[in-house]
Amino acid sequence: MADPIHQFELKPIFSLGRIGGSEIVFTNASLFMFGAVALVTLLTMLATRNRAVVPGRLQSLVEMSYEFVASTVRSSAGNEGMRFFPFVFSLFMFILILNLFGMIPGGFTVTSHIIITFALAALVIGTVIVYGFWKHGLHFLHLFVPSGVPVYILPLVTAIEVISFLSRPISLSVRLFANMLAGHITLKVFAGFIGMLASGLGALGWVVGVLPLAMTIALTGLEFLVAVLQAYVFTILTCIYLNDALHPGH
């Protein structure tokens, strides 16, 4: 049976040598990341090359993505949030394309690596913290001190707010990582059952193998949903966190 973990292995393509004790290797993951960048860039540039007033299919697709992300940003973070629109759009497209790349047979799911999802989450939280302090100074700390709370429970509320803020990068990164990892492992395991049944039980195995096949097909559909949904969830949570940076006194 094929190893369900095999699909997450990083395969080196070339090495840049060692920098500070770590070897810098260009792997299949790096290739897929650059592939996503190239795809998103090509898609947007190709779609907008005519600058048509009445859009074609490709231009409609890009415009819809634009409007979709823009409306998500506006509804969660207000019009001031639009200064982060390129950031949020890049995040959404990057995660979406990487998730979908993972659905290509033989492809690689970059977002199933915790270091990448953590880097994405850290980027979001880092942006929130840096922008929050830059824009509001120490007033940004009001984020942890909600107004209208009685003084005697304020320390408790503040502690909870601090903990919830600190857990954000963890929950944000682990949610995406775990969803992609678990989904792909499940898919691989069920697909592996088909081969195991066929080779182990002979003719009967071929018949019974229909069950995991059906399951694999259903899971594939589900995984496409998860791929898109997790990209959206990451995006909308980013917008909500950015809203905290824009309007800390909630």
Partner: peptide, 12 residues
């Protein structure tokens, strides 16, 4: 992690 982060930073 180091190389992953580097390529992520460059690509993103």
């Amino acid at each position: 992690f180091a190389s992953q982060l580097l390529w992520f930073a460059i690509s993103f």
